[in-house]
Write a protein that binds this DNA or RNA. Sequence first.
DNA 1: TTTGAATAGTTGCACAAACAACTATATGTC
DNA 2: GACATATAGTTGTTTGTGCAACTATTCAAA
Lengths: 146, 146
Amino acid sequence: MSNNQFKKGELYSFITGKASTAIARRLQKKFNAAGLNITIEQWSVLYHLWKQEGISQQELCNATFRDKPSITRLVDNLEKLNLVKRVASESDRRINLIYLTKQAQKLQEETMQLAEETLNEALELVPVERVDICKEVLQVVYDNLK
Amino acid sequence: MSNNQFKKGELYSFITGKASTAIARRLQKKFNAAGLNITIEQWSVLYHLWKQEGISQQELCNATFRDKPSITRLVDNLEKLNLVKRVASESDRRINLIYLTKQAQKLQEETMQLAEETLNEALELVPVERVDICKEVLQVVYDNLK
DNA sequence: TTTGAATAGTTGCACAAACAACTATATGTC
DNA sequence: GACATATAGTTGTTTGTGCAACTATTCAAA
């Protein structure tokens, strides 16, 4: 049993993701304090659209690691907030291509700044090489299970 | 800026906790496949009660990193499933002490086994010393932000 | 060309989380 | 003892998640 390194007292945090929960809460508070009326989950969709817009909901599912109903509803809410638009694909009428509005484009810089600030607070006093190892381990975990 | 190690392409997973999401989903599937009719969130409450029962809802809030309404409803649902009982404290009538039923006691061994199995799958091929560093980093993150 | 399978997206349901507002009880101070 | 304050827990509302079932469209094989 090569990886039986979890004594009972230790496995809880790994499974429940207390660290990422803490990060997300902190970032949400920063959004609220800045008067930005979006949730972390909505932001996570915008995050991928800022990298490339005009992608399908299915591609957003893959990018955000969410199922189709979750994306349907996140896009619904982003549309209500006037941050994205669904545009039916010309070539395949099953597909919605998702585009950003001008309002959403304006959010990018400020929210990314708050995200970096949050991570800097989270990782204060942690040496870079240890952060790198942590990121790599989490990536392997994701690849092992996805 | 000692910890500005997050380029844009990297911060997403840290904030959204893709790894812990993947772990929780895998464990939930194992619970379902074993015919165990509980959610990961309910299990996380039982987890702390197995360590010590007869604690208050407020203590469960602290232990699970959840707010009071969340615990109220988790305990509601655990009570409906006949897994816990609320018992009014003798000394302070504001407090509910939460006790496990016999049914819940029976769940401990099997679910803990499935949790360890899940973590072993998650961490396959990851050297123990890297897992240790990862856990320590996540603990610091939690302590920095909680 | 028809039919059956695959794919994209939506809807309904149960469960959970975050926040605000609320009730009930306890405590500390005058 | 009375009153202000703090603490424990509950309820309502909005948002998000996971699953199953559904519609619409596309594609591939007979």
